[in-house]
């Protein structure tokens, strides 16, 4: 490149205008969201500990002294979700513009189920996340129990929620789709950010599958445990 300075705003616009720029944003926001999924699962698995354990953890997160941190994390996550979704919608629109006339007959040569259904698994998971927040954070679905102000009785709320088979079923469906979404997303983010190597990429794909399945098992175990009465 020449030493002619390019306006930084134009530089960002040019980066984001390119599909590769949007994919890079999707990969980076995907990392943030994946990190949250892991942290959320680690938090949730505390339900298997001492009956007070998960409520203590909730009280720690809701501690008014650190509410700035909680809201900072919430805003960062919301921003990541919005950027991930906006970029995906723009790329989806580009895809439709790029092939206005469909094939009469089209076969798949190598596409995995996960890769072909990202635009289905994504929105369903997003719809579930909205429901999940309304259910267990806002308390708009069923009234939430509290031990004290800023000390939600998470254990009781989880058990009450998952005792409802419809809520458990939606949860398990969403987790299954999340697992499929994560499988493609986890290895694909490396490709989008420019890393591919004949030695490591096949291992990355396997690792992504293992990670996605472990996350699904961990999450699905909770409604199952509630329904069969292991967590009371």
């Amino acid at each position: 490149m020449s030493a002619i300075a390019i306006n930084p705003v134009y530089r960002v616009v040019r980066f984001y205008e390119a599909p590769i720029g949007k994919k890079a944003i999707m990969a980076l926001t995907g990392v943030v969201l994946f990190g949250y999924v892991v942290a959320h699962l680690v938090g949730n698995l505390q339900i298997y500990g001492d009956p007070q354990q998960i409520n203590k953890y909730a009280a720690l997160l809701h501690n008014p002294a650190t509410s700035g941190l909680l809201w900072g994390a919430r805003i960062a996550l919301l921003l990541a979700v919005v950027m991930h979704i906006v970029a995906s919608i723009q790329l989806w629109k580009l895809k439709n513009d790029a092939r206005p006339v469909a094939y009469v007959k089209k076969d798949d040569a190598a596409a995995t189920y996960a890769s072909r259904t990202m635009m289905w698994s994504g929105p369903i998971v997003a719809a579930f996340v909205i429901f999940h927040v309304l259910h267990l954070t806002v308390g708009a679905v069923v009234p939430l129990q509290e031990i004290a102000p800023n000390e939600p009785n998470v254990r009781a709320n989880v058990i009450a929620g998952f005792s409802n088979p419809a809520i458990s079923a939606f949860y398990i469906l969403a987790i299954a789709l999340l697992c499929i979404h994560l499988y493609h997303g986890l290895w694909s983010m490396f490709q989008s950010l420019g890393f591919s190597h004949p030695r490591y990429t096949p291992k990355l794909k396997k690792g992504a599958a293992i990670f996605a399945i472990l996350i699904a098992i961990g999450n699905c175990s909770i409604p199952v445990a509630v329904m069969v009465g292991l967590v009371k």
């Binding site: 949007k22 580009l94 895809k95 790029a98 596409a111 890769s115 694909s188 989008s192």
Partner: peptide
């Protein structure tokens, strides 16, 4: 992009 080609979603049909 200007030619209106779509974006790669790492599906591997091309390969």
């Amino acid at each position: 992009r200007q030619e209106l080609f779509g974006s790669c979603t790492n599906i591997g049909e091309c390969e």
